[in-house]
């Protein structure tokens, strides 16, 4: 029964239903609170939900229970990558590879980390290693596509992205890559299609929201900037949002005071009011953006004849 539930949790995770996966894993953990596998998969779900510290906590428990599971190190590397701790992330990947020489996930993660560090040769070498092991996997093909996209070879990038999508048409990374390639090729409609698909599958993906904003920017630069600004603001955590509001308050206040000290009283008053406007905007504008986004992301819609 537990094996079946674990399979369900995994399936939910791969399908992007993180809440459902977490619910199943919590049931499993109630039966066996010390299982490193359950904690590890829970961490993966939490990472997908950008709950990095919670994921870190779960990984700590899992690694204490069983430090010989390679996937715990690759998951840990993902956390480090999100926290921009690239060197530790590399170490974690090496730990995974020490346990399993041919751990494809670790190799692909190393490829990503090296790309972040601008060490493209090392990145490519990891990718080639992964490709030798699993040449037709969606992850490997997407990674090649990203590599060629980064170095400006759109034709090859498109070829790999198409192959990746053929291997797994639901993969968010492959769809995102295809969206970016299509935008660079000026195929706006196609780019929009893939951006929307990616956001539907992973609504928190900043990269997908950025792509969508870029598409909007392609049509109208001001509107695109507005779109980008809102996507960034609306995806902030409560803590970060509050900090930005306090920061903005201090900035407006100091600016207004400095301008007033210079003798420009009217401008100072205008700046004070603009702070108010900013606060009102965060209250009204963000929900408006979210409604607009939801409408844009409407899934498949039927024509009136159906």
């Amino acid at each position: 029964m537990n094996e079946y539930k674990l399979e369900m949790a995994r399936r939910h995770y791969t399908q992007g239903s993180y809440e459902a996966s977490i619910r199943v894993l919590k049931e499993l953990l109630a039966d066996d609170p010390n299982s490193p596998t359950y904690h590890g998969i829970l961490a993966l779900n939490l990472i997908a939900q950008h709950r990095i510290y919670a994921a870190e906590y779960e990984l700590k428990i899992a690694l204490n229970q069983d430090p010989s599971l390679a996937f715990l190190y690759t998951t840990s590397a993902r956390v480090c990558l999100l926290k921009n701790k690239h060197n530790i992330a590399l170490e974690q990947c090496d730990e995974a590879l020490a346990l399993e020489v041919d751990n494809i996930e670790a190799l692909l993660l190393k490829n990503t980390i090296y790309k972040h560090l601008n060490q493209h040769e090392k990145a490519l070498s990891c990718l080639n290693h992964a490709a030798r092991l699993e040449p037709n996997s969606c992850d490997t093909l997407t990674a090649y596509g990203e590599h060629y996209y980064d170095i400006g070879n759109r034709k090859l990038a498109l070829e790999y992205a198409t192959q990746a999508l053929k291997s797994d048409p639901q993969d968010t990374d492959a769809n995102l890559l295809m969206g970016n390639i299509q935008l660079s090729l000026n195929n706006i409609k196609e780019a929009e299609y893939h951006a929307k698909f990616t956001i539907l599958r992973n609504p928190d993906s900043q990269a997908a929201l950025a792509l969508f904003a870029n598409i909007k920017m392609h049509k109208n630069i001001v509107f695109g900037l507005w779109w980008r600004f809102n996507s960034m603001i609306s995806n902030l955590s409560h803590l970060k949002g509050t900090m930005i509001l306090i920061g903005a308050y201090l900035f407006f206040n100091l600016l207004a005071r400095a301008v007033r000290d210079l003798g420009y009283l009217q401008i100072s008053t205008a700046i004070s009011y603009s702070w108010l406007a900013f606060v009102i905007y965060t209250w009204v504008g963000i929900p408006y953006y979210q409604r607009k986004l939801a409408k844009e992301l409407e899934k498949f819609s039927f024509n009136s004849d159906f």
């Binding site: 198409t162 999508l165 048409p169 639901q170 769809n175 698909f197």
Partner: peptide, 9 residues
């Protein structure tokens, strides 16, 4: 929405 991607690719 999902099936469309499978049908395309």
């Amino acid at each position: 929405t999902t099936a469309r991607n499978y049908a395309r690719y």
